[in-house]
């Protein structure tokens, strides 16, 4: 069970797909205009991810190595179709909100990435937990981004209005806002991580340029003497005599 817990921690914190691996950027930027959208997208992806990892891991001995990518895609596409039909039947609101991005889960890099990197090499149970961990990390990332965008752009959290409409910075619910929030959150998390790693890589470099003004005097102030004085021996200070 230790391996399974480690997988969960790995997915949510250590290799968080949104803030660390930077995978699945398309849904991350496109559907996170509100916290609920982000949460729904994350959960849907998590279900697909956990099941696809489980199935792929279970059949990993049967799939020939050379056709593994098409085989993975077929499995993932079947699962996505099932999930989409279930959403249409039971949560039509979410289905309408996410629209085209549900079928696009098939080509989400996280799913193929985990299948290739983990599920095709490990037994089913840890693989499933790997999928759940990654899915939770993805959900966390999307929900956080969605929360900030919703709060700044349309003044609410999960649909609860707390900021009057006059103060809505509506660029945050548009495409540029997604980039601002993603970059800001990633920078903040990196900062936290650097600090917990003993401050490595944090803080300013303090590259202060040396005082260049002095070099003229240091290098070049050479007093020259007349050539005939050079022959005049040790008491050069007096400047010799003819």
């Amino acid at each position: 069970m230790g391996a399974c817990r480690e997988r969960l921690y790995n997915g949510v914190v250590k290799e968080n797909p949104t803030f660390v691996l930077m995978l699945g950027m398309c849904p991350t930027l496109a559907v996170t205009s509100s916290a609920f959208n982000g949460f729904g997208m994350g959960m849907t992806t998590m279900v697909v991810l956990a099941l696809s990892n489980l199935v792929i891991s279970a059949v990993r001995g049967i799939i020939p190595d050379r056709v593994r990518i098409p085989a993975f895609i077929v499995i993932v596409a079947s699962l996505v179709t099932i999930v989409q039909l279930l959403l249409q039947a039971y949560i039509p609101v979410l289905n309408d909100l996410l629209g085209i991005y549900i079928p696009l889960i098939v080509v989400n890099c996280i799913i193929l990435g985990r299948a290739e990197a983990y599920a095709s090499k490990n037994p089913p149970l840890p693989s499933m937990f790997d999928g759940v961990g990654m899915g939770l990390g993805f959900t966390l990332g999307l929900t956080l981004i969605g929360m900030f965008r919703e709060l700044l752009g349309s003044g609410g959290i999960f649909g609860l209005q707390i900021i009057p409409e006059r103060f809505h910075i509506s660029i945050f619910v548009m495409a540029p806002g997604a980039f601002f929030v993603l970059a800001g959150l990633t920078a903040m998390l990196n900062r936290l991580k650097n600090r917990s790693n003993g401050g490595a890589g944090s803080g300013g470099q303090g590259t202060v340029c040396g005082h260049c003004g002095g070099c003229g005097n240091l290098l070049c102030s050479v007093s020259r003497e007349e050539p005939d004085h050079l022959s005049g021996a040790s008491d050069a200070g007096k400047g010799g005599s003819v």
């Binding site: 070099c215 003229g216 005097n217 070049c220 102030s221 050479v222 007093s223 003497e225 007349e226 400047g239």
Partner: peptide
């Protein structure tokens, strides 16, 4: 002759 101090700077 006097000692001339000439400076060459970069």
């Amino acid at each position: 002759t006097e000692n001339k101090l000439m400076q060459v700077s970069a």
